[in-house]
Nucleic acid binder design. Structure first.
Lengths: 193, 193
DNA sequence: TTCATTTATTGAACTTGTTCAATGTTTTTG
DNA sequence: CAAAAACATTGAACAAGTTCAATAAATGAA
């Protein structure tokens, strides 16, 4: 059940077999049905999770009720509200399953235990956070400099497997545009082909 | 000379006096004159830096020649191109001093030495990267959901000391709008007061 | 299968933001 | 100090993106 997790960890750092077993033993499998929430705004995020099945969206709802999708997570991706989890403060985010999904969760206490006992775990999360940060920097630059057309085209090119599983409403909330405008962009692209 | 650095580190983790001395001893002071570059796109970023004087801008130039500012760094902030530094690949970013500035720099080799010898340093950079990442997530959400007016007002409110040292061109490049439009926003705000 | 709900498309009017060009202001630098 | 360079403002025309409302299409639940 933790095969995918082990493979993921191995892609970042190297652990001995027993270290790997010990660390992965700290995770608990959780099944989340479509449209159910792993986290809601206002709660304190009690877990860091690794997706083994399905797909999640991590999003924010602003004062006017509009949704902004921070990221999607499919199999082999990690999910958490890093701010709420590390600082134990109420989350501003929602994490919702978009399909029947499963994730392996680790609690804060167990994660801290791992940091103490296995120094390489500290490295694992440093490296992963760095990579996530680099990706977000790129997205930030793209959002500052590119039109919605370009961002949409690059999104479907970069995540072909992902965009097929999403509605246009969700993609629009990720790109930061209205779904009506996304519909117009899609039409324009179709006409050009 | 490393007083500010020590204080900064202490705000994230606790080190013994000798650990602190050893780690801080790995940094070299560098003076960068106004309009000079600490890093240019195409180069491999050889340092991670801590600003002790002045101000830097970290920015990207896109294909059409427009600049997007990823962040500013004043005294007590860290600067690097984390992607180029960790993966030793050509940078896409420029780091330029906007005033006569100084920074304490650590090389990759010395930083890796510190990771090996002082496990707490691993924690230091994990924690710092997490905080930076949380801040960038917030900025991403703001950029997806707020108008330029709101983003400008929040910027000057959040960084009052910073915005006074910047030109409107630089603030516009950070907010992702043209400087002409920023000028119009400023006028509108003045009229309202 | 059918009815209800969610999702997608379209058009028209509107708002936000850009571009370009001209002009004035401030800052640098020789 | 004077000249040059960089910065800021403004207006007009335009492009990008939103909002609202109507309709069609797809999906899901009973």
């Amino acid at each position: 059940m933790t095969e995918l997790l082990k493979k993921n960890i191995s892609s970042h750092i190297s652990l001995t077999k027993s270290e790997m077993e010990e660390f992965c033993g700290l995770f608990q499998n959780k099944i989340i049905k479509k449209k159910k929430f792993l986290l809601s705004a206002g709660e304190i995020c009690k877990f860091e999770g690794f997706v083994t099945k399905g797909i999640f969206r991590v999003y924010h709802i602003d004062k006017s009720g509009a949704e902004q999708i921070l990221y999607f997570a499919i199999e082999n991706w990690w999910i958490t509200d890093i701010d709420s989890f590390t600082n134990e403060r109420p989350s501003q985010l929602f994490i919702e399953a978009l399909e029947d999904s499963e994730a392996l969760l680790i609690s804060k206490k167990d994660k801290e235990f791992a940091y103490e006992k296995l120094p390489k775990i500290e490295k694992l999360f440093r490296v992963m956070t760095q990579k996530t940060h680099v990706a977000l920097q790129r997205r930030m630059i793209d959002n500052l400099s590119k039109t919605a057309d370009q961002r949409y085209l690059e999104f479907i090119e970069k995540y072909p497997q992902l965009h097929q599983r999403l509605t246009n409403l969700q993609i629009a909330a990720y790109l930061g545009i209205s779904h009506e405008f996304l519909s117009k962009i899609r039409k324009k692209i179709l006409l050009k082909k």
